[in-house]
Nucleic acid binder design. Structure first.
Lengths: 251, 251
DNA sequence: CACAATCTTGCATAAACGTGCAAAACGTGC
DNA sequence: GCACGTTTTGCACGTTTATGCAAGATTGTG
């Protein structure tokens, strides 16, 4: 067990929820609460969080689950999103997967464009709630608090009855060998169902997602039609993708 | 339970409404009023609010009234909601229908209570997204922008596979002759499906909803188990409901 | 003034905390 | 291989903190 793994988790949790309990952390990694507290103390010393009785909270205490996650890489995601929405054309039908990057994309969709959008993310749905020309289909299911999205049989069934021209696939990791991958099994099932019922897949990936793979494979590299990445990403990293026929878009 | 969570809630509440009651705070987080008052005292000491008899008010005198004007019934709904959530017991499964009153109810549900909640309202879902003990089931379907909720075949199908002990039924009008009624046909279909699959119905109605009827009948008067209304509503208005066996709760 | 609601204070308790210490894991140099 | 220092972790100890309850003071209402 690497302490750094726990640090990563703590940072992610703080970014996502704004707070973390020492007890939860201990349980999650099967370490003593003493160790959990030591971790929190250490991160607090570096300024990554603020220590409170019972656990720790994020430094910028504002906002709940959906908003803060955006804030971490907000600028990069907003830039990528602006590039990504250019791939959308009026009249199309879309799947928009969950994740903060996809929320940024939903926010970047112009109000003037007419679309049919199906999503399992409350954040995406909220972002599109005011788009009067968007026909919004909410994919139901059991809400997973950690993922911020709906998963389960019900979700899969609804997806199986739909078809989209474009899928904005959120991914925990993307590389040219394994393709798009996810951390969670149930989440991966949903993503695979979307992949199956879409004509083309778009993956928008921040730099930290590239060349990292999560355990569950969602889409093979050659299934990814478009890849939107930061302009500073090295060309060598993307060379393999091009061989699979993926179009690279830099923002 | 991190005390910090309550602090954030208090600050948000003060920013939104300009005041907060110690009793409400205690109920919201299922802590004693002593703890609630201690919280308020602490924030007052730091200068985040000013302590008054019954609760606390915001320091800046210009906070609050902005949003109140948008929804004149906001206070009444919050008050009714606090009364309504007392009808909920830990471990129950609920349907929560759409509508601003039901969003107020979702916001008033204590974090300490364990529930299974199915809803077709994005607002209700968002309000419950952080209730860690609530198993949240999102009813999918086509999102209707005017209603702020999901309707359609898919929604009906999902509801038909569920059952709830309590249904918080939103209604466009309630009277003792026609029962609960709705303005929209598709919305009414969803409500009827929920009624069919619930053991007991609770209607929380602001004064303007009473004694008015919308075109589509959703639930007959004798199907309404509980009716939560403002304390100022005339007894004569409610007499007819009592004959149907409806329990009246005044707030 | 009477009465109820609200508040403060003090106390008890359980949870969370920090510290010191020892065992284990690890690398390093001989 | 072996001796040494470092790091990490869990455990035991005493301390601090949060919370609810009770008792008495204070405030608002009629």
């Amino acid at each position: 067990m690497l302490a750094e793994q726990r640090f990563e988790f703590i940072r992610a949790e703080l970014a996502a929820k704004g707070r973390i309990l020492a007890g939860d952390l201990a349980a999650r990694f099967s370490v003593s609460e003493d160790t959990a507290r030591r971790d929190l103390r250490e991160l607090a010393k570096v300024g990554d969080c603020r220590r409170v009785y019972g656990g720790a909270v994020a430094i910028a205490p504002n906002a709940g689950p959906l908003r803060l996650r955006n804030d971490l890489l907000r600028d990069e995601k907003a830039r990528l999103a602006l590039r990504a929405v250019k791939l959308i054309h009026s009249g199309q039908s879309l799947f928009i997967d969950s994740g903060s990057t996809n929320i940024a994309i939903a926010n970047a969709i112009p109000h003037s464009i007419e679309l049919t959008v199906a999503t399992n993310s409350l954040g995406v749905a909220a972002a599109l709630a005011e788009h009067s020309l968007v026909r919004l289909i909410m994919l139901g299911g059991t809400y997973d608090r950690d993922l911020g999205t709906c998963v389960g049989q019900e979700t899969l069934r609804t997806i199986s009855q739909l078809h989209a021209e474009l899928l904005f696939l959120g991914s925990c990791g993307v590389d040219a060998v394994h393709g798009a991958t996810a951390f969670d099994s149930a989440e991966a099932d949903v993503k695979r169902a979307m992949v199956k019922n879409s004509s083309a897949i778009i993956v928008v990936a921040t730099a930290d997602k590239l060349s990292t793979a999560a355990p569950f494979r969602v889409a093979s590299p050659d299934a990814i039609r478009h890849l939107v990445v930061d302009g500073k990403v090295k060309t060598s990293t993307l060379a393999q993708f091009k061989k699979h026929g993926t179009q690279i878009h830099r923002a």
